[in-house]
Nucleic acid binder design. Structure first.
Length: 627
RNA sequence: GCCCCCGUAGCUCAGUGGAUAGAGCGACGGUUUCCUAAACCGUAGGUCGCAGGUUCGAUCCCUGCCGGGGGUACCA
């Protein structure tokens, strides 16, 4: 069992939720809110509206350096201008009111005189820190509060084109979307995930045309998706008819020479499918099961699941009405034979909803999808986790949707959660040496294989355990590498970097978890008994204190992730947390230390392990007991 | 042409209207009778692309320029 999955993290039934007052930061912000509104009421400075308050409270943050305390408020300096007073005087006033806020002094030490131009520095009382971290220890939610107002949030992510094998281009949407799903759910929102499959577009015209002109039945029988992928790629070359592509592929060039009208015919195949042509419909239905089986296998391996798989084909029956409705409302009009909405004026490219040949586009489908989701799910938000290159599409889509006047749309936030491109180590889009896109499956295989080579160094593991560890480390490394970078920037895909066992990688966090496991295994400690006993954790040493403070930020970090849909804030914090644990573990004995410190430290270690594991779980990353 | 994103240490990248701009890799040095040293601690390394502006304070906000990437009417 050494390398089995995570230990049972279910704590003993906890009593009243310790997170009821929110995190330490929440509590301090509440106190600041009281102090600031009091000062505003007394005319110390004008706070124009209640809407100004959140921005002011955002300026209550963790300090960069412990010598300035645990938190600091910097809003007084900004307010001084409006007050017509010296920043420092305003800060003194706010600090005085802060200290007098009911309940403030049970958790925080009285703020001293403001420092520098007007920093109000606050330190958490040692007793309050001990109480809070001890409460987190017996809390199923590890001290993380639920959101006050849960929302219904639709997350649209992954959405592969089923006509070809999933490739490296799908990984970011899938991994980021899944992490956001897990995080928002844990926060207490109602999340509906929808895999909006590309199962109906022009790509099927290519496959249908290829099937009719150049299929390889034996290859299809052996590996259906590989053959469909081959058909897609070669027909695309023929249809695009780029000289350099054809020069590199004599077979495609020969086919193109025999079928000069191929590009046109491909579009006709698509149109026939959409029009309900019996043969094309039958072929489409015969292709789908193999396509889906392939994709599902990959999702299982990635531990990603969806509530719905409403692909383009599902919305097909609604498309004609979308166009006529837009036309009837005077939003869409004919132009160069096509129909589009001129969202940015007549001189800018319109948002096309029907092509000149009568076929619909993904713009049409996306509009139909928005309407369907509003009618059936009544979401507060819809998130689209999609490549940043589609930014213009979403701008136009959102503008059109809002003008369309779908009931309820004015209350829905439509958000394009954009992310950058995956690049190879040469700085160009990640491709194989032969220039093809890298298949997702082979990508995962290589990651696992490389992880196995590293894990092999541990002699205490059986072959089966090693395989499991390698799978967990390898997949975790790939996911983490994707999540730990700011999602808006392109990132360079490097197995060597993501599988480093030090630095900001999944393996470093997984290793920290394994070291926690090691303590309890070595000491023969009954963790469930420890948890039931609800011991007092007393962070006496500065390293324990730093660790405890980081643990208690978990809820803050998840709130910050939600605010900007940025999972990398969670990875940064996990890395910081693991580092603080390592520093604690390295310098302070746990098993060999006398009571009552021993139990306190054991509890702190156990809590750290659970928090790290939970944090990784929220990223979709697993852990092992030994590695 | 127009629109969007990016430019931070040798490399890969964080970062925020605030206090001395951080981390990993790479380089150099230290720590092991002790719970996983796959760790920890330290040193070196920066005109935060350039120039203006706003501000008590700008790497962050605004404008211009330079450089890189992406998008830009019937693919998604």
């Amino acid at each position: 069992m050494a390398a089995s999955g995570p230990a049972d993290d279910t704590g003993p039934p906890s009593g009243a939720s310790p997170g009821a007052d929110g995190t330490l930061r929440d509590q301090l912000r509440a106190a600041f809110a009281g102090a600031l509104s009091g000062a505003a009421a007394d005319g110390v400075f004008p706070v124009a509206t209640a809407a100004d308050m959140p921005a002011l409270l955002d300026q209550v943050r963790e300090t960069a350096d412990p010598k300035f305390g645990d938190f600091s408020g910097t809003m007084a300096m900004g307010l001084a201008k409006a007050a017509g007073r010296k920043p420092r005087d305003v800060a003194v006033d706010v600090a005085k009111r802060l200290a007098a806020t009911p309940g403030f002094d049970t958790t925080f030490a009285p703020p001293g005189d403001p420092v520098g131009p007007g920093f109000i520095n606050v330190r958490v009382r040692d007793e309050a820190l001990a109480t809070a971290v001890s409460a987190a220890f017996v809390d199923d939610r590890l001290g993380v509060p639920r959101v006050a107002r849960p929302e219904t949030i639709v997350i649209d992510f992954s959405s592969p084109n089923v006509a070809k094998p999933m490739h490296v281009g799908h990984i970011r949407s899938t991994v980021i979307g899944d992490a956001l799903t897990r995080i928002l759910r844990f926060r207490g929102h109602r999340v509906i995930t929808d895999n909006h499959l590309g199962d109906w577009g022009t790509q099927f015209g290519m496959i249908l045309w290829g099937w009719k002109h150049c299929r390889d039945d034996a290859a299809f029988a052996a590996d259906p998706t590989a053959e469909l992928g081959r058909l897609y790629r070669s027909v695309r070359k023929i249809a695009d008819a780029k000289p350099e592509d054809l020069a590199a592929d004599p077979a495609a060039a020969a086919l193109a020479a025999r079928h000069p009208g191929a590009a046109e015919e491909v579009l006709q195949e698509t149109a026939r499918l959409h029009a309900g042509d019996e043969e094309n419909r039958r072929l489409w239905q015969s292709f789908m099961p193999a396509c889906l089986a392939d994709i599902e296998r990959l999702y299982r391996r990635l531990d990603v699941s969806f509530d719905h798989w409403l692909g383009e084909s599902f919305f097909q029956p609604f498309l004609a009405d979308v166009v006529t409705d837009l036309e009837r409302r005077g939003l869409a009009r004919e132009s160069r034979g096509a129909v589009g909405v001129f969202v940015d004026g007549d001189d800018k490219p319109p948002f096309l909803v029907r092509k000149a040949d009568g076929a619909f586009l993904y713009a049409t489908t996306d509009l139909a999808t928005i309407r369907w989701r509003l009618e059936h799910w009544h979401p507060d938000r819809i998130l689209y986790v999609v490549d940043h290159r589609q930014g213009q599409h979403f701008e136009q889509l959102f503008k059109t949707a809002h003008r369309w006047g779908i009931p309820g749309l004015d209350r829905v936030a439509l958000v394009h959660v954009a992310f950058g491109t995956v690049l190879g180590e040469d700085g160009k889009p990640f491709k194989t040496r032969s220039g093809d896109t890298v298949g997702l499956e082979s990508l995962l295989d290589e990651g696992v294989e490389r992880a196995a080579a590293v894990v092999a160094a541990d002699e205490g593991l059986s072959d089966g355990e090693r395989r499991l560890v390698a799978e967990t480390i390898g997949i975790g490394a790939i996911k983490y590498a994707d999540l730990c970078q700011n999602r808006t920037t392109d990132y360079v895909f490097s197995y060597d970097k993501m599988l480093e066992l030090k630095g900001n990688t999944a393996a470093y966090m997984q290793y920290a978890v394994a070291r926690v496991e090691g303590v309890f295994e070595k000491g023969g400690i009954d963790r469930m008994a420890l948890r039931r006993s609800a011991p007092a954790i007393v962070p006496a040493d500065p390293k324990e204190r730093a660790l405890a403070l980081a643990i208690l930020r978990f809820g803050d970090v998840l709130a910050d992730v939600e605010a900007d849909y940025r999972p990398n804030l969670l990875t940064t914090w996990l890395y910081d947390l693991a580092g603080r644990y390592s520093a604690f573990y390295d310098s302070l004995p746990i098993l060999k230390c006398p009571e009552p410190e021993r139990t306190s430290r054991l509890a702190l270690a156990d809590l750290t392990g659970r928090v790290l594991r939970k944090g990784l779980e929220l990223l979709g990353i697993g852990t092992v007991r030994r590695m």
